[in-house]
Simulated scan of single mutants.
Amino acid sequence: MADIVRAAASDVPALASVLASAYAEDPVWSWLMPHDRDRRLRLLFTAHLAQQIPAGRVWTDPDRTVAAVWAEPGKWKLPLSYLLRNAGTLLWAGRSQLPRTGMRLLALEHRHPAEPAHWYVEYIGTHADARGTGRGSQVLGGLLEQADADGRPVFLESSNRRNLTFYQRHGFTVQEEMTFRAGPPMWSMWRWDADR
């Protein structure tokens, strides 16, 4: 895991920018935030990263061009205290689309598997300027080494069909194309330990 590092509090602005860039053209985020997306994504990711970094759940590359939020088994669910602390940010970033955003998040939480115990890739993104350099693969690969050493599977939801082949190259398989009452589909994906 020499190619990846745990993010520090000082990395929040840079990594919020990375994730905002990575999700700028994402179909789900485009639907959730049709206007002023870059600023609103930066706001959301700044608040989220500030909460996740102290727990050791944010990883990056040495140049801070990739950001990954990675939850250990049993720690993927956001506690009510998180939502309360970030209510103002969620209201401001969600604005008129807040009900839509809330419904999508609740639907995803409801569909998130409880078993088996698994690692969870909540977000991973590469800044647009660094796409195609292999840095995203290095960060994800380092995290997957952790999961393999632990012997547990890895779960994620992809919000962009174009990213499915990237995840498949890393051993993930699509479990389900998730459709919702409104908005674009998403895909749930699993990766099992290579030795299984």
Rank of each mutant, 00 (worst) to 15 (best):
Val58Phe: 05
Ala93Arg: 02
Leu49Pro: 00
Leu43Val: 08
Leu32Met: 13
Arg131Phe: 15
Arg100Asn: 08
His127Gln: 08
Leu41Phe: 08
Glu25Ile: 14
Gly56Ile: 11
Ser21Ala: 04
Ala22Ser: 00
Val18Pro: 06
Tyr23Pro: 08
His110Gly: 03
Leu19Phe: 12
Thr89Pro: 03
Pro99Tyr: 14
Leu91Met: 12
Leu41Thr: 03
Gly134His: 07
Tyr120Ala: 07
Phe45Tyr: 14
Ala71Arg: 04
Leu84Gly: 00
Thr65Phe: 09
Ala128Thr: 15
Leu41Ser: 05
Leu41Gln: 02
Ala68Cys: 13
Ile53His: 09
Asp129Arg: 11
Arg100Asp: 01
Tyr23Gln: 07
His127Lys: 01
Leu44Tyr: 14
Ile124Lys: 00
Gly94Arg: 03
Arg131Cys: 05
Trp29Lys: 03
Arg111Phe: 08
Thr126Lys: 00
Leu32Ser: 04
Leu108Trp: 09
Thr60Cys: 08
His48Phe: 11
Arg131Thr: 14
Ser30Ala: 15
Arg42Lys: 09
Gly74Lys: 02
Gln51Asp: 12
Glu109His: 14
Trp92Phe: 04
His35Lys: 12
Leu49Asn: 10
Gly88Thr: 08
Ala114His: 05
Val28Gln: 07
Arg135Gly: 13
Ser96Met: 04
Arg39Gly: 13
Ala117Trp: 11
Ala130Gly: 01
Leu41Lys: 01
His48Pro: 00
Leu98Pro: 00
Met103Arg: 10
Thr65Ile: 06
Ser96Pro: 00
Ile53Tyr: 05
Ala71Gly: 12
Thr101Ser: 02
Thr65Arg: 00
Thr46Met: 05
Ala22Lys: 01
Arg135Val: 10
Arg57Lys: 11
Leu98His: 07
Trp92Gly: 00
Arg42Ala: 07
Val121Met: 03
Ile124His: 07
His48Lys: 10
Leu19Cys: 04
Ala47Glu: 02
Trp92Leu: 01
Trp31Ser: 12
Pro113Met: 02
Trp119Ile: 06
Thr89Asn: 02
Tyr82Cys: 10
Gln52Tyr: 05
Leu83Pro: 01
Met103Asn: 01
His118Gln: 11
Trp31Asn: 05
Leu41His: 03
His35Val: 12
Arg64His: 15
His48Gln: 14
His35Tyr: 15
Leu106Gln: 12
Leu44Thr: 10
Thr126Gly: 01
His118Glu: 04
Asp26Glu: 07
Ala71Asp: 14
Pro54Asn: 12
Glu122Ser: 12
Leu105Pro: 09
His118Lys: 03
Ile53Glu: 06
His118Tyr: 12
Trp76Lys: 06
Ser81Lys: 02
Ala93Met: 01
Leu84Ile: 10
Gly132Tyr: 13
Thr101Val: 15
Arg57Thr: 14
Ala114Tyr: 10
Gly88Ala: 05
Arg40Asn: 07
Glu25Met: 11
Gly134Pro: 02
Thr60Trp: 04
Pro27Ile: 15
Arg95Met: 05
Ala93Phe: 02
Ala87Ile: 09
Ala24Ser: 13
Asn86Lys: 04
His48Leu: 13
Val69Arg: 01
Arg131Val: 15
Asp26Gly: 11
Ala47His: 03
Glu115Trp: 04
Leu90Pro: 03
Arg95Val: 07
Asp26Ser: 11
Ala128His: 14
Ala55His: 12
